[in-house]
Amino acid sequence: MDSPADTDRLVHWLIDSIELEAAAFHVGQYCGRWRASTAGRGLGSFHLVLHGSCWLHVEGRAPLELGPRDGVFLLRDIPHFLGPDPDPRAPLPAGGMQPLGTPGADTTGIACGFFQYRGALSTLIVDSFPDVVELRAEDASIRAAGTVFDLMLAEAGADPDLPPPLISRLAELLFFYVTRHVARQHDVVSGLMALARRPEFTALLEKMMADPGHDWSTENMARTVHMSRSSFYKHFVDASGQPPAQFLLLLRMKIAAQRLNHGETIERAAEHVGYRSHAAFSRAFQKVIGEPPGAFRRQRRSLDPAPQLN
């Protein structure tokens, strides 16, 4: 089992590595019969219960009841909706969201919105997260997050469709509580976080992240963690779900994409991750990222540096 120091180090590394942009979409309350969803936008989303209660319905899962100061982060765009009924087949409602007001017996206050990961490393990390992450008010490990809910209530404006910008920043803060919460769980079974949770791989990951262009052959990786090649290979595949060479390729190309996204030249990004041949780097980049590095860089440079979520 990880020590608190190991967990804290992992949490700090994760929070420092994830680049996130959140945008609040609606902040208000429902009463009577209602149904709300953020599905179909191709983005991760969040739903935070400010007062009252409701049920989350996710395709293929049992209904999930949410109460005051509970929240749910849907880290990928999956079919879902929220409503006051545990039965997903309940009749569709007619009413919409109203401004936050005095909580009543049949009212539910909700902040909901979207987020996207900025930087390739963020996607690499979040790929290890489960699709749905819950924040529970009674969970002592995230009790401090309740203060953020209080701030949201205090900042909510009169128009549910035009929430103040501070709500989005508060949602980002809650996401990092989610990051810490996930890092302390033991149900992450593959990917970068699973490797980071294994003490025998912590030093290796830190060195690979710091110097991705090093000669990281399987033999050198095994030597770094003081294992035989065969033992290292088995434990690495068990933890990450993929061979070391495949993981290294993914890691290098994600790091290269992040550097290109930040304005670095293709040549310098390629050199940083260990490629001297432009052609070899281009082939590897397209295989992992899905487009050549030149097209990737041109597309990112043509975008507003701080795009707004819709």
Rank of each mutant, 00 (worst) to 15 (best):
A245C: 07
L248Y: 05
K254G: 00
R229Q: 13
L195H: 03
M208F: 01
P199K: 07
Q242I: 08
T265L: 00
F201K: 07
A245N: 13
K207W: 08
I255Q: 10
D211V: 00
L250H: 11
T218S: 14
P243K: 08
L249R: 14
P244T: 05
T224K: 15
M253Y: 09
Q242D: 10
H226C: 03
A194M: 12
G263K: 07
L248K: 12
M221C: 14
H235C: 10
M193N: 11
H214T: 07
M253I: 02
H262W: 04
A196Q: 06
D238F: 04
A194Q: 09
T202R: 12
Q242W: 05
S228N: 06
H262R: 13
R252D: 06
V188S: 06
E206I: 00
V225H: 14
V237Q: 07
V237A: 09
L251I: 03
V225F: 09
K254R: 01
R223V: 01
T224Y: 08
G263M: 10
M209H: 10
F236R: 09
V189T: 08
V189A: 15
G213T: 10
M227Q: 13
S240A: 15
T202S: 15
D187M: 10
H262T: 00
P243A: 11
L192R: 14
D215I: 00
L195M: 09
F232D: 00
R229H: 06
D238A: 12
E206S: 14
A239Y: 03
Y233L: 14
L192K: 05
S240M: 09
R259A: 02
R268C: 12
S217C: 13
A257L: 03
A222M: 14
Y233A: 10
V188F: 01
M221R: 08
A210P: 03
L205F: 04
D187R: 05
N261M: 12
L204T: 03
F236D: 03
L260T: 00
G241N: 05
W216H: 07
H214E: 11
P212Y: 07
L251A: 06
A210Q: 11
V237W: 02
G263I: 00
L250D: 07
P243Q: 06
L192N: 11
I255L: 15
I255N: 07
H226S: 13
A194G: 10
L260S: 05
E206W: 01
R197Y: 05
